[in-house]
Simulated assay, not measured.
Amino acid sequence: MGAGGYVAIAALAGLYGASNLLLAFGWQRLLHHLGASVSRSWAIHAYAISQLAKYVPGNIFQFAGRQAIGVAAGIGNAPLAKSTAYELAFLIIGGVLFSPLVLPLIVANAPNWLGWISFVVVLASALWLATIVGADFGVAAVFYVAFLALSGLVFAAAFGLAGGSVDFGSHPAIAGAYALAWLVGLVTPGAPAGIGVREAVLLFLLGGLSSGPVILLAVVIGRAITVLGDLLFFAGGQLAGRFYRMTKEQR
Rank of each mutant, 00 (worst) to 15 (best):
W113T: 12
A235V: 15
K248D: 10
L209A: 08
L31E: 12
A181T: 09
V56N: 02
A157K: 14
A11S: 08
G5S: 14
G76D: 01
L34E: 12
T247M: 05
L206E: 04
G115T: 06
A43W: 08
L129T: 11
A240Q: 05
W27M: 02
L216Y: 11
A200G: 06
G14T: 11
L239N: 05
S165I: 02
L209C: 07
F61A: 07
G35S: 07
V142P: 03
V7C: 02
L80Q: 10
M246T: 15
L97Y: 03
S151Q: 10
I93S: 13
K82R: 14
L209I: 01
L52C: 06
A110V: 13
A64R: 09
P213M: 05
A157D: 12
R198F: 07
G207D: 13
A3H: 13
G237P: 02
I106M: 05
A224W: 11
A235Q: 11
V227A: 12
G212F: 15
S50P: 02
A140I: 06
T131G: 01
N77H: 11
A18Y: 08
G58E: 09
A81S: 14
V197C: 02
A179R: 13
F233M: 09
S99I: 12
Y244D: 13
Q62K: 11
A240K: 04
A191D: 07
M1D: 09
M1K: 11
R245Y: 01
P172K: 00
G185I: 00
S125G: 13
A162P: 05
N20S: 11
L150E: 11
A53C: 07
L103D: 12
L150G: 08
D230Q: 05
V166E: 10
W182Y: 15
V133S: 07
G207L: 03
Y16E: 08
I49L: 11
P104T: 04
H33A: 15
T131D: 05
T226G: 03
A191T: 08
H45P: 00
S151P: 03
D167V: 09
H45E: 15
L203R: 15
F25A: 14
L231D: 04
G163Y: 01
N77C: 00
K248R: 15
I75N: 02
L216D: 11
A240N: 03
L217M: 14
G76R: 04
Y47E: 05
G163V: 08
A240L: 06
S151V: 01
L161D: 07
L30T: 13
G95S: 03
R40V: 10
V71M: 12
P213I: 02
H171P: 00
G164Q: 05
A36F: 01
V102I: 15
G229E: 14
I132C: 06
G169W: 08
L22Y: 08
V187Q: 00
L88I: 15
T226F: 00
F61M: 06
K248T: 13
A149T: 09
T247Q: 10
V96A: 09
A173F: 04
K82E: 14
Y55Q: 09
V187L: 04
P172R: 01
Q28E: 13
